[in-house]
Amino acid sequence: MNDLLQISGPTWGEPDTAAADRIEAALGADAIERRVEHRGELTLDLPLDRYIEVCTYLRDQEGYDLLSDVTVVDYLGYAGEVAGYWGGDGRDINRDSHSGKRAIPEPAGPKRFGVSATFAKVMTVTDGNHRRLRVRVWVEDGESVPSLVPVYPSADFHEREAFDMLGIDFAGHPNLRRILMPEDWGGHPQRKDYPIGGEPVQFSDEV
């Protein structure tokens, strides 16, 4: 049977632990707080004040020339009892079954929001291995993250979207305004405490 099966997913190449080692050698051991490896994907958790420094190092010295994605994740209630299930209305639907979580996950990080950037090597590849690497910083609500735009200009729309959808403030972004939602929209829809349904229907005011 086994010759009929294969693992199909797109690969990241080998996890680039060597790059992480070089970052620690060049910028000091405190430049990386934690390394997380999951399914062959290496994530480096960085202290907030070393974020830009490490990203610049990755671009200039390690050859990560493409910023492929900036993702912000709201971990509010992530490791909690019901954790957003069935709309997060507090019902504890028998946790031992499939529908609840069989195991409560470990807390993902120290703060509420994880801001991660995924880099890829495109033009700088010499050994035919287009590696990828993800870096991540953690912030609380209201804390600001330094903007990646001066280092990677393509972070522009990604960070505007993160600001729009999750309300993360990117300090130093030249044009931080809403991109997808209307300019006068209240709240940030992708936050876990933003209600689903129940928002006022647009353009339905009395005429």
Partner: peptide, 30 residues
């Protein structure tokens, strides 16, 4: 299982990536 994966594939206009953050439940966390 809980954890995050990023799976990029080549769509007709370039890298189409799915960044999936799972929390161990039956629905994606993000």
């Amino acid at each position: 299982p809980a954890g995050e994966v990023y799976a990029p594939i080549e769509s007709a206009r370039g890298e189409f990536g799915f960044h999936l953050i799972a929390d161990g439940g039956a629905k994606p966390w993000r």
